[in-house]
Design a protein around this nucleic acid. Structure first.
Lengths: 119, 119
DNA sequence: TTGACATGTGACTAATGGGTCACCTATTGT
DNA sequence: ACAATAGGTGACCCATTAGTCACATGTCAA
C-alpha cells in the first residue's frame, strides 16, 4: 500500500520497541503527550543529560515513527504519533478480551486517583 | 493497595519495556497469544537458540509480569498477561483520541487482509 | 555581514544485554 | 534406586547502545 497512510503507519516493529526501551525516550513521549510540538531546546531543559544525548534519543523516536517533526525557523518542533502505540496494543489484545482488560486498568487508575487524594 | 490486583497489575514500567525490546521475547508472546499455557520444552522448539537462551528470555518476561507461570509436574506452563500491554497503551493514548486511532489501525488491518487475499 | 542562537554529525568510551556452556535440582516411570 | 526427562543457576564472551565532545550547518536580527 503506497498511500498517505504509510506516513502515519509504522512498519518496522523492532524500531518501535527498541525506541520504547529507554526511560529517557519514554519521558520524552510523556513530555510531548502533555504538550505537543516542543523544540529540542525546550525538551533538553527537562533532563540532566547533555543536549547531544537528548537529540540522539529524539532521533531514535523519529526513526521509529513515534515522533514526527516540523521545522519552524531555526527550531525543529516535535509531535507525538500515537499510531505505533496502538499497534503494539492490537498485537496481543484481541477485540474480545479488550473490554475486560480495559475495565481492569481503568479500575487501577481509579484506585490510584483515590490514593493521591488521601495522601 | 495490597490486593489481589497487584498480582495482575504490573508496577515496574522499565521491566515491561525492556522485556518487549527483544524480538525473541515478542515472538514468545506471539506464541503464547496463539496457544496459552505452553512449557519451555514446547516453546524452545520454535527457535534456533539453545534452551538456555529461551529460558533467559522467558525469565525476563516473567519478571516484567508479561508472562505468568504455573508448575504442572515437571513442566512449567507459561501464560500471557495482557494487562501490562494495556497500561502501555493507556499511557500515551487518552480516552478522547483512542476511537480515532483505533479506527486507523483497524483500517490498516483491513487493508492488509485484502492484500493477503489478492496475492 | 557579523555574531548569536538552534540544530545536526562522526568518532570515541563505558556500560548494558544477548547467547552459550558446565553444572545443579526436581519429577516421573520402571 | 535408577535412568530419563524437564527445568534452573552462575559465570563467561561478544555485540550493541547510551552518553559525551569537537566540529559543522543553518537561521535570525541588527
Amino acid at each position: 500500500m503506497g498511500h498517505l497512510l504509510c506516513q502515519v503507519m509504522n512498519l518496522d516493529d523492532d524500531a518501535v520497541f527498541r525506541a520504547l526501551a529507554d526511560p529517557t525516550r519514554r519521558r520524552l513521549l510523556d513530555l510531548l503527550f502533555m504538550r505537543n510540538g516542543q523544540s529540542l531546546g525546550e525538551l533538553k531543559e527537562e533532563f540532566e543529560m547533555s543536549r547531544f544525548g537528548v537529540m540522539k534519543h529524539l532521533k531514535v523516536l523519529v526513526e521509529a515513527d513515534l515522533v514526527t517533526t516540523r521545522r519552524s525557523g531555526r527550531a525543529t518542533l516535535h509531535f507525538l504519533n500515537p499510531v505505533p502505540i496502538r499497534l503494539v496494543h492490537d498485537r496481543w489484545i484481541d477485540k474480545y478480551t479488550e473490554p475486560r482488560v480495559a475495565a481492569l486498568t481503568d479500575l487501577k487508575a481509579s484506585l490510584e486517583r483515590h490514593e493521591e487524594q488521601s495522601s
